[in-house]
Write a protein that binds this DNA or RNA. Structure first.
Lengths: 159, 159
DNA sequence: TGGAAGTACTTGAAATGTCAACTAAATAGG
DNA sequence: CCTATTTAGTTGACATTTCAAGTACTTCCA
């Protein structure tokens, strides 16, 4: 009863990961909204769009990039479109789809917010770690992403 | 424009952390709800309560433990109370507060769900990592948690 | 001891997220 | 081709989360 979940390195590692989340994500989100007037969701959408050279993506691509469901993204896009941050452009190749692009206003906002947020990420997260630790974390992440995609692909193939 | 956020180890490490989140959290949440009938939030509340020997906490303690705001927790408790998973007990020392405890039903549910979820955590997350990587991650987490709490405390003291 | 200030939690309304239809377009197979 | 199925995205109803008051108790201190 209580206290220790398990005395197991795998579970301890998971709890360690969880502890980072709990300590870092909420203050970062607070910083973002207080200093940049952006919600976490809005910020992520912008970052997702920036990850491509044209700064435009189809909803399905963007959803994949963010790990979101399409429905959620669609609502989010509509809200951001209503605020004048994003726009939907028609796609000539596939009329069911569209491209999401930033408006001038949206671009200006993320261009201001990004460096501020990166500074805060460094202050809160990066400055805590040695170069070696950061390299370790990157390696860990690669292992996990690879493992998950392999596992998931196998499942889909197997069924 | 686009593609690379920065060529900076600190930012790369942050993106690595983010990539773990995006790859692991959604499938784990899906597993939880499909196999145990619990939402992520409900599960976290139970885990939080289990972290103490008495399996009871005041809302403020639980909120702190989970990194949640009190308002959110209060709503969540009410919903879980309505489902018969939790109960509020009055606190004789401080009448503004209360203790959150699990009902028999709630306890049974988390006792069943926890090992299932841990198995999935291992499958998806733990199995991806070597022992050394897990130790590294634990060390990284400790550094960050310590750094954040130091930073945050300083802010509060300074103002 | 009594009221001013602070604390612990709850509440209601608005914003956001989830889920299951639904629409419209693309593709596949006879 | 033409209809049946699949795919891409949107929508609306409902659930959850956030945020700003609101309530009730405690603590402080004159």
């Amino acid at each position: 009863m209580g206290i220790k979940l398990a005395n197991d390195l795998q579970v301890e590692a998971w709890m360690a990961f969880h502890a980072i989340r709990v300590n870092v994500i909420p203050p970062l989100a607070r910083h973002l909204s207080e200093h940049c007037g952006l919600s976490e969701a809005e910020y992520q959408v912008f970052i997702g769009l920036r990850s491509t050279p044209e700064m435009e993506l189809k909803p399905s691509q963007l959803a994949e990039e963010l790990g979101w469901e399409l429905g959620r993204l669609s609502h989010q896009i509509s809200r951001m479109e209503a605020k004048g941050l994003l726009m939907r452009k028609q796609c000539s190749v596939d009329a069911r789809s569209c491209f999401i692009g930033m408006t001038k206003k949206g671009k200006a906002l993320i261009d201001k917010a990004l460096p501020m947020q990166l500074k805060e990420v460094k202050r809160l997260f990066g400055d805590a770690l040695t170069n070696q630790q950061m390299k370790n974390l990157i390696e860990i992440s690669e292992s996990i992403v690879e493992h998950v995609s392999r596992t998931t692909t196998k499942e889909l193939t197997t069924k």
